[in-house]
Design a protein around this nucleic acid. Structure first.
Lengths: 401, 401
DNA sequence: GCGCCTTTGTAAATGGGTTAGACTAAGGGG
DNA sequence: CCCCTTAGTCTAACCCATTTACAAAGGCGC
């Protein structure tokens, strides 16, 4: 891919806005230092962002004897972005202002059987309609949708969504037709949206090379280099969950044997616990996982052993990632991290030296995502924000007098 | 890392020169099409390259009725680059002209016991001296050295070289002091130099994302994105050989258990064969590997079984790489590929679908490096060439009238 | 030989990008 | 009122690639 000077403009624009959102209110000087750009460049970019209605000046601050700093903040009164998290049993929709704080939300329950594209789109539309009423006149700048499975960015959806047997579904077009909304739609899978979310919000901001590990029912990773999501050749980079960690291991739902997901995916964790504990897991997956976390906290041996076993496999898998990619940072994310992270992450960190090589081990930081927020829909919205900015920056609307 | 407009200039310059070297003699028009740049840009870059003495016009060619094409070629009469391949038992030095063809070479045998930095440097100096006599007045543009183990690019050498116990050796400085040569020195490990070699020469040219798999006594990988070697946080990206493929597997020399190197490194391959065949391997590792290749060709069952077993592990390892990185291309390289590639690569390709996911599998091409050349020293020289170009392009010596 | 065509290569103009430095704005303090 | 400090903008310079126009160089028909 050829890279043009527009790309660096856009990247710098992203960098400025990311810092601005994270540290708001802040000043141009501080942004310049944070982004390593000159004050003039930041000033340029900020002027444009203000003109686009993305940023506003929001008061001034004493500067100790000189001209007071003008404080900048995202224009929370401007347009909104919508992020949708589609999973097998629910559709979760959130509305964000330009500071990426949640303005509104809507939720739809789905039956597992309701898995046709039309049905899923119906639920999205229902959620969107409810929210749109309350939204009034505020402009929608973009719509990001996270779908489970392989998502072909350009076209729609292909390949496997765990249980839905979709192939080459022109989802984007179908959704656009149904919604009758003249708004750009961005599709991707949760691995990608979470990574973009970490890029705009989480600990990934400003880190050159990082990986996000998403631990849930399925597991996977997202990679980001130089402030950009790494997609790979077919937007399927990061399928860490289906890397083999034991060629003679148990069958994975993907067809291969001994994938790491078959050891550290939520079902595998709960199965292990059930084996050790003897009693059958009660209730839903999430309830069972919460029970495991509680049992671990209480020091129950079966829970402690389960966590240790899982951590051992996880450490080996993380080490593989660390040895191969040599990132500066690995962030743990996903609902299993939310439930069991306190137990799991330190155990993994402790075991990592046994598997990872010295040099990459020294360079890497492990972190657990502490945010309460739904990173999937947040990331989907961030995707829409990126799209909005690049669209506006491409039209050639540079307004130099 | 901030990227400036200089970077794109340099990248375009690399792209042009790569195509020029590969397809020489060629014309500006063809280069423009190949690199996707405008003719004018290519013309600019070529003018500079000519001025720098890197490229020369070398005749003209009929163009079917129009102005004849001016043919361009690397200036093979200009300066030279030197690439050094340091291994445990030898120092192999090659001198290249700007077309990266070998002009001269020198070889030093080393005892395994001669592993102090001073001794290694002594051998490099000896080889260099012999070559320098024959070189006459030709300018040396750069010196690239490949060292086994972890190489910290900025400083020298650190971490493990399999048997040498070097730590934080200021190798570059020591080498510069000893050689008394006013020439920039570039250090890296074979994984990195081979990858750069593939970038300039092999099948990696013009590929957006590719991985090189180096199969030898040790095994490892190199990654390259957008025409650039990916180094990772500490220049140790690509340690694929020490990714775990079986946490309960055999001990690896790196300390961990069940690394893929413990299954598909040359010693492991030969050990497997010995187990099946019953007789002890005769002669050196390379001789034994050649014997295995011959036996496989002859259809001996023990050899066939050995290849199959190795291919099975290799396929799982390659699939891990493919699933995680989603590259367009994987190139097999290293001396084991040279000896056993005919047997191994097709077997791996056949087994890959059982381990890799559908989407990344469809996108990836597997290739065996066909070149006879020593990619290690070639890549080291290419590293020096890159350094030479970037040095010259940074000085701000743009000579616009 | 003379237009006319085709193809190649270059020069100038254009437009996108960053930056240094001059300049303006705004306030503090003697 | 003058000087100092800090913040922000504007201008000019520079870098890069590309578009557009043009010059160079040859073939071909007449």
């Amino acid at each position: 891919m050829k890279s043009t000077s527009r790309d660096i403009r856009l990247r710098n624009c992203f960098a400025v806005l990311r810092h601005l959102i994270a540290d708001a209110p802040t000043s141009r000087q501080i942004l310049a230092r944070a982004t390593d750009l000159s004050v003039a460049t930041v000033s340029n970019l900020v002027t444009d962002l203000i003109e686009l209605g993305v940023v506003v000046e929001v008061g001034r601050e004493d500067s100790g004897g000189g001209r007071p700093r003008a404080l900048l903040a995202p224009n929370t009164g401007g347009g909104v972005m919508i992020g949708v998290d589609v999973a097998e049993t629910y559709v979760h929709l959130e509305v964000y202002d330009l500071a990426l704080t949640v303005v509104d939300r809507a939720e739809e329950r789905m039956e597992v059987s309701e898995n046709s594209p039309e049905q899923v789109i119906g639920h999205i539309a229902a959620a969107l309609d409810r929210v749109r009423e309350r939204l009034g006149e505020r402009e929608i700048l973009g719509l990001g949708v996270s779908l489970p499975g392989q998502v072909d960015v350009a076209w729609g959806v292909s390949g496997f969504a765990p249980n839905w047997n979709w192939h080459d579904v022109p989802f984007r077009q179908m959704l656009a037709d149904r919604l009758r909304l003249d708004v750009p739609i961005y599709l991707d899978n949760p691995l990608k949206t979470i990574t973009v979310g970490e890029l705009w919000f989480g600990d990934g901001r400003g880190v050159e090379r990082f990986a996000v590990l998403i631990l849930g029912t399925g597991v996977g990773a997202g990679l980001a280099f130089s402030g950009q999501l790494y997609r790979g050749a077919t937007n399927s980079a990061g399928e860490w969950g289906h890397t083999t960690i034991n060629p003679a291991g148990p069958q994975c739902r993907c067809g291969a044997k001994g994938c790491i997901e078959a050891y550290v995916g939520a079902p595998a964790i709960l199965w292990q616990w059930a084996q050790l504990d003897g009693r059958a897991a009660a209730g839903s997956q999430t309830e069972a996982m919460a029970a495991l976390a509680a049992a671990w906290k209480a020091g129950e041996p079966s829970a402690v052993r389960t966590v240790e076993t899982v951590a051992e496999y996880l450490a080996a898998g993380v080490a593989n990632l660390v040895n191969l990619v040599n990132p500066d940072l690995v962030v743990f994310d996903g609902w299993v991290t939310g439930a069991l992270g306190d137990a799991l992450v330190p155990e993994v960190e402790r075991r990592l030296p046994a598997h990872a090589m010295e040099a990459p081990l020294k360079a890497v930081r492990l972190k657990r995502n502490q945010q309460e927020r739904n990173m999937v829909s947040l990331g989907a919205a961030a995707l829409a924000l990126e799209g909005h900015l690049s669209r506006l920056n491409t039209v050639g609307s540079r307004s130099r007098r």
